[in-house]
Design a protein around this nucleic acid. Structure first.
Lengths: 337, 337
DNA sequence: GTGAAAGCGCTAACAG
DNA sequence: CTGTTAGCGCTTTCAC
């Protein structure tokens, strides 16, 4: 049924070694004539080499694994697109894994990827890598890994591509301060993870710099989701009507916040200003359009893939990389004069 | 360096056959004691079986390929999530491929997937499969394929999961007619593809039924993108200010249309009503929120994967499946009394 | 319950 | 330029 390199060899009256040479485009070792003949047969019978068989002898699979929380989140979709684009340009195919921020799921995916012998992994870590035993095993395997978007102290040995999250939080908060706001809330993402905490640092820095007192009540953690942003805004505003501005830990959160504000009949930006982080494509579509600290999402994915592939092929360059962010001013904040 | 089944066998003083039995969880053929011993060693040394080696002997890879135009399009992201969720539940890992509606790219991906010996493919076809030779080769391989979202006449042998697009177009248009609109434009998607043409049929049917004359000028094709929706609306409205309603071929297009209308200072829904198809998550977030014919996007992906896996395992069920749509009324249309 | 051996489809090294 | 051979890591008979 299935046709193999052996069949082709027989049909062409050559050894499979020769066939192997032509399917791998080895420049020498085969006369033009036999090459053509073999190619013709391959084409006629529709032979497709089995790359898994190949991979076991050459020990590389030309596949990479991508682990993200959720592709249906626009931020990760964009990231995934960047990763896939670069990968395919370099001849790699990518496995898509949605971890849902669930450490067990992540572990399962990691295992599956290892069994599939991917050449490398791009990982958006789901929380801490606290299963020491698993981590040690993972370390021992010594597979190339590139982190993306967020670091984790547990995986210090891995590099990745990120933005400067402290700066991003700082920029956002500072802009809010420039609008004469004093009561600025930080609607944070998941507690404990890199991005959330770094952005907090930036937030604090900006407040301190402006001599604005830090109010613990104004900092509330949750999930990176619309729903979470919505609910937290509702309860936050209920208890703290004095809040003048919200720095949301991501655009997704900001979108939820704006929705909640609308539902409470609080005007954005007139009564409360909102700024997010990310600049996902919807942010310019919602109303009011969102002021946000833009990250080059696609590029982060693209570069992460490139870094990984370079690393796989020992082209060094295995260092952390920080891509620039930019404040994009739209209509969820008042016009500054 | 790399540790193999042989190493484990030696360490445990058994044959690799025995080790194979335990890593594959064969219920019999190994005493509890040796099983435990082997498992312990595997755990200690961190051995990970090579599934590629396995796949070449069992001739199945537990991988499937997913080809879509673009994950960064929310519709496809949601679809991809459904596919991946189901696949992983069944123990399959999925390769993500973005074809960009480019037939060449699609061909390359298809080839790569075949070389990787995926067990099956979920395909959102990018236009026609007009390369007869390639198609024949592809047919000969005889790999399980499930179509998703759109059919193509070239691939009649494959089944898939879809919605009833005629009905969807009909519903949308009929609702617009119920709002006393007569001049209703169809801002279609890509010319020639299944979904676009079927929705057109529904559009026509509704108009005919209401004895409204069909005006060719009111039907304009383009791409399934915000940009395309935007630009086409601009030029359409410039020449046809009498248009009272727009049936957009997808939510993405509708979003572009609404944006254009806003820029032209045409009020939605007061002056022009808009309805889309899909109900992607943003549709409820933009302003005005979008009236649309909702498809169960995630379920389509999920079911497609399930159908594929069933097919792979000969659980029959290889028939077309049509999932229900539902008109969701929001604020891009006037309140009906 | 376990081992030995053959073979999956392919590459690579070595002859010739 | 080409064939032969020995694996790659694993599964699967078939004996014992």
């Amino acid at each position: 049924m299935k046709i193999t390199i052996n069949d082709i060899a027989k049909m062409a009256n050559v050894s499979k070694g020769t066939v192997s040479r032509v399917i791998n485009n080895k420049p020498e070792g085969v006369s033009e004539e036999t090459r053509r003949r073999i190619l013709k047969i391959i084409d006629e019978v529709g032979y497709v080499p089995n790359s898994n068989a190949r991979s076991i002898t050459v020990s590389e699979t030309k596949t990479i694994g991508l682990i993200i929380p959720d592709v249906s989140n626009p931020f990760f979709a964009e990231l995934a697109r960047g990763v896939e684009d670069c990968s395919s340009e370099y001849g790699y195919t990518v496995f898509l894994c949605n971890s849902d921020m669930n450490i067990e799921k992540q572990k399962n995916y990691l295992n599956a990827l290892l069994e599939k012998r991917v050449d490398g992994i791009i990982l958006n870590t789901s929380g801490d890598f606290n299963d020491k035993k698993f981590r040690d095993k993972f370390y021992k395997i010594n597979i190339p890994v590139v982190l993306i978007d967020r670091k984790t102290q547990d995986l210090e040995r891995y590099k990745g591509v990120f933005i400067d999250n402290i700066e991003a939080g700082y920029k956002a908060t500072k802009y809010l301060i420039s609008g004469k706001n004093e009561n600025i809330a930080y609607l944070a993402g998941t507690y404990g993870i890199d991005t959330t905490m770094k952005r907090l640092e930036g937030y604090k820095k900006a407040l301190t710099e402006a001599s604005i007192e830090l109010k613990p009540d104004y900092i509330v953690y949750g999930e990176y989701s619309i729903k979470s942003g919505y609910e937290r805004t509702l309860s936050l505003m209920k208890g703290h009507r004095e809040i003048q501005a919200i720095f949301a830990g991501s655009d997704i959160i900001a979108i939820g916040a704006i929705k909640a504000l609308k539902d409470m009949n609080i005007l954005v930006p007139d009564e409360v200003e909102v700024v997010g982080i990310d600049d996902i494509s919807i942010s310019n579509l919602i109303s009011p359009s969102l002021t946000t600290v833009a990250q080059p999402i696609y590029e982060i994915g693209y570069k992460a893939s490139e870094k990984l592939i370079n690393f796989i092929n020992n082209k060094s360059d295995y260092e952390d990389e920080f891509l620039p962010t930019k404040l994009v001013i739209r209509n969820s904040t008042r016009r500054r004069t």
